[in-house]
Design a protein around this nucleic acid. Sequence first.
RNA 1: GCCGAGGUGGCGAAACUGGCAGACGCACGAGACUUAAAAUCUCGUGACCCUUCGGGUCGUGCGGGUUCGAUUCCCGCCCUCGGCACCA
Length: 860
Amino acid sequence: MSDYDPQAIEKKWQRRWADERAFEVAEEPGRPKYYCLVMFAYPSGHAHVGHVRNYMIGDVIARMKRMRGFNVLHPFGWDAFGLPAENAAIKNRSHPETWTLDNIAHMKGQLQRLGISYAWEREFATCEAAYYRWNQWLFLRMFERGLAYRRRSTVNWCPDCATVLANEQVVDGGCWRCGYAVEPRDLDQWFLRITEYADGLLDGIERLDEWPAKVLTMQRNWIGRSEGARVRFAVEPAGPAGEEEPPGGDAAAEIEVFTTRIDTIFGATFVLLAPEHPLVARFIDEASDPDGLRKRVQAFRALDRTDRLTGAVEKEGFDTGRRCINPFTGRPVPIWVANFVLAEYGTGAVMAVPAHDQRDFEFARKYGLPVEVVIQPEDPDGGAPLDGAAMDAAYAGPGVLAGSGEFTGRSTADAPAEMARAAEDRGFGRAAVQFRLKDWGISRQRYWGTPIPIIHCEGCGLQPVPDADLPVELPKVAEFSGRGDSPLAQIPEFVEVTCPSCGRPARRETDTMDTFVDSSWYFYRYCDPTNTGRAFDPATVSYWGPVDFYIGGVEHAILHLIYSRFFCRVFKDLGMVDHDEPFTRLLTQGMVLRDGAVMSKSKGNVVDPDEMISTFGADALRLYETFVAPPEKEIEWTDSGLEGSFRFLTRVWRLVTRAAPALGTAPAGGAGGPGLDAAHRALRRKAHDTIRRVSADLDPRAHLNTAVSALMELVNELYAFCDAHGVKLGQPAAAGAGADPLPPATGSVLREAVEALVRMLSPFTPHLCEELWERLGHAGGLRAAAWPEFDPAVAKADEIVVPVQVNGKLRARLTVPADIGEEDLRSAALAESAVQAHTAGREIARVVVVRRKLVNIVAR
RNA sequence: GCCGAGGUGGCGAAACUGGCAGACGCACGAGACUUAAAAUCUCGUGACCCUUCGGGUCGUGCGGGUUCGAUUCCCGCCCUCGGCACCA
């Protein structure tokens, strides 16, 4: 057994860091700052090794940056509102706060046992009124600006969670949390106008060059910008000519469509309405509905929402019997209702151009509707032009407009802009941009969230709670009986208030905010966490912000990471932040799997960090999770891998503790020292080469795994060096070094390498390295120690090995002076016997010499 | 269908700007130490072939191309994973 005792070492240093408030920071104008942030935690109960990996990546970067002289902000906190707490309260007949605070206490203990260098002084939980009052404050600012508004709308309702979900929280038609099929419901809801910022959010993506391409793509898809045009088709009066319009009739009705292909509009042979389109009900008179169209509409609307959204339903439609006028051709076209047209996208109505849209084409063929070609591909061979009657598929490619009136002959490249302009000039349309992104519904009919600070007054309407009355605190008691209306609605002393405007009795809003509001700006609050006068001091955020390095799971690519970008822009418009983007660099860490599956309690494959820590120590766990693969990749948990990391740390322990008594003072830099022999110079070279590699791997590359392997190589080399120079590292322990004092040169070279090793390893395994650093005779801890300095003069080799190829195949390796000239290298290569054996009897056509890299001899 | 990321030994991976493929680790094998085992230390470990130290051939998903030289660049495929998707 080794005398490496992680339990004792880790306790000692964790206590010391806590006593010294070692990682708290203050603004220091003029000193470079670095804001390193991991996504804060939902206090679900227990951290597992997947969380640990996330936090380790942040901790390695934060500790390294600190040693490199940066003023590092590395905070942590809790995303503490949310449904699981409320569900647990219902189940346990307790209060959500109890469950939440218990979990936070437990998880905080777990994180502290990992020795993460958080500024715990800045910790907060979003369920504290001191935090969520600023959610309310911000909501009111958005309300004033029309960015927060209330409207009745069809929303995504999760029957299981008994609440509304944002569009982003519906995954494959189910609830993102419980998977239960989402239903449509008509409710009055609060929305945040994120669409106001759609263009800015999309354009900003172009400048996020330190974000993973995957996340940017997902955000682009989610925002879903389409350029096209809106065109209005006038509805023809109903019934035979001369018949009187019914009262409230639709003589002036118009159908507005959105299209990305206005250049095909002369080929629009019918118009399709969503079943929910308001005109549909007007077109179908219930009293005289001989064909039972109303029933068909209802059948369409009743279709499974998921199937309808994913296209799993058979495309069907029917003729309303009404017609509208194509404003470009002046011709009437029939109006149909189709089950695949979505009310919530665009205008809920589309023009159908079967010749140039595959879906329209199939629909037209199914129902015998006309197909008119208005785009002819440019065919250099002069083949037969397309014919609507004979086509077996739509032509959606580029070409030249045909049968399109004054636009005939224009190209599909130019026509759309011209035709949109024409539509605008003639007053029936305009160029338009359509987004897939919708406004963010934040109303939740649940208790455990931020109360929305609004009062409903019958006389005055929606009244904001005055700023002076903030926070609107969650009432402490509430009945957690189960499902139904918001629990807050059942607390009279919360609901019954007086109108701040007229003073008459009024009702308080009982919805709470989506918890994603909480997480959309928490990174600013860390900068100024105890401010009682405002959300944060802009000057403080100006110093720390934006977040330089943000680390978290890719599952937040479109939820949290779009909302935060949105809030950043809102704060900027409020004059509170001075940057456009909140997170300069984003790293999405891979998940930790076990037996090929995500760890979960239900699968019973959770690896508990506490168990690993008690067996191998936090340092071994930290090292394993950073070494096993690049941070972005998912990893498969293996116990043997963790054991391997523990073995390595034992090796480091033995190396440093046994060698320490014999170490001299480190060499004072310079070019290797003329008095040193080859082995000593080689060790110095290796040490400095490792400094170069590890430094670059950590910053900026964040390749934590290769940084560790470089350190392992250095340790291997140090073992070989010690073995060759009489420092006994192997067993038995009693026969350690120190018995024979080392020659001063050997001791000083060893010290230099060992101290570089300890410092560079310390971000990964801080407890072990602090202990070793102390044993090496340094006071003040590693925080005071600078990152080792790379000296190119020392790293420079005096001899190098150059591979020699013949026709691209490796045939020999030459050991030559590092500064060898091209000519000398060339002749040395040609003189090599192995080379001559392969060139014998052949003509040497060419010799490629790449300085310091390789020689390739081309022989024929 | 569209967009993105990938495919390298038994396994996790490395190769940063076109220059020795497989560093480092896991697993496995051999040796040293030991009464023995564990631990530790040292060595070996892509495949195939000739086998004599040693040498040869093949090898980074598949097929082509560019190049003195390709895991890396280009063209065409196949597969895996992720996102979006009746979005007009």
